[in-house]
Design a protein around this nucleic acid. Structure first.
Ligand SMILES: [Zn+2]
Ligand SMILES: [Zn+2]
Ligand SMILES: [Zn+2]
Ligand SMILES: [Zn+2]
Lengths: 135, 135
DNA sequence: CCAGTTTTGACAATCATTTTCGTTTTCGTG
DNA sequence: CACGAAAACGAAAATGATTGTCAAAACTGG
């Protein structure tokens, strides 16, 4: 793997949440790297093709990436405020999706599942700020 | 509701699958309408804001819309080949998502779930073509 | 028919992502 | 080490969906 690609993977690993190509490019340049935006896109493309990083789309269509601990099939619980993500897996949703597909005569059934919310840390901070403003 | 918006809703209703703004614009123009692309985008925006149509993002980030039978919370089983979608709902995933969020201390938990596959019709057609080519 | 409001659509502007293409690095081999 | 092919880079241009602008058109109540 090239040095550049390794740098992108490293930058991604330093975050616990999902980051966009533009985010990572900004991070790397801020750290003094002379990497180009094109290379960041290419590295992310390669990393997601090889399954080393997960990709998902934000509500406004931007692609965001995450270097997860496991490469096996899993989903994410993502904080709407700080974007931190927790990897989740379990047979319940897997079985459910397969059954739903089969029941309707579909073959080659796959699924996309993401759970969103406000993490404990952010929940507490928001509650704090909310009550402070109510004076 | 304006005539234009109604036309967009109508065009969307005539399809059982998800369509993009550009698709609908092409359909409407093909039918002789003089509607503008901007108006199609505005109509879809309004329709999705009011919850009358569902939106989701394709793998390449394009927004696609569907006029579903119900306005209550549900998910979709989408054919990867012909894009036909079946509305699905059930307590299993709903409960699972809520539990997963709660277990990790998240509040305001929501989720996005889509199931993909090849519908029965498309499966049969593909199988047919596959065996024909094997001569 | 009239003034005011809403809707429309041609066109320009945005912005993430992809292409292009010439330059730089890397690498195998003599 | 030297040399040429192949892979990786990056700046700049191109793409394509979506949004913003603004003047014209359609609609409203009176
Ligand atoms: Zn958080
Ligand atoms: Zn799964
Ligand atoms: Zn189908
Ligand atoms: Zn649900």
């Amino acid at each position: 793997m090239s040095t550049r690609r390794e740098a992108v993977r490293q930058a991604l690993t330093e975050s616990s949440g999902f980051r966009s190509a533009q985010d990572l490019y900004a991070d790397l340049r801020a750290d003094g790297s002379k990497i180009g935006l094109t290379t960041v896109y290419r590295a992310l493309q390669a990393l997601s093709d090889s399954g080393e990083v997960d990709v998902l789309r934000t509500d406004d269509g931007e692609a965001v990436y995450r270097a997860c601990d496991t490469e096996s099939h899993h989903h994410h619980l993502v904080c709407r405020t700080c974007s931190t993500a927790v990897e989740i897996e379990g047979p319940t949703v897997e079985r459910w999706a397969a059954e739903v597909g089969a029941k309707h005569g579909f073959t080659g059934v796959t699924h996309t599942v993401e759970v969103f919310g406000t993490c404990g840390t952010c929940s507490r901070r928001l509650a704090q700020q909310g009550s402070a403003q109510q004076v």
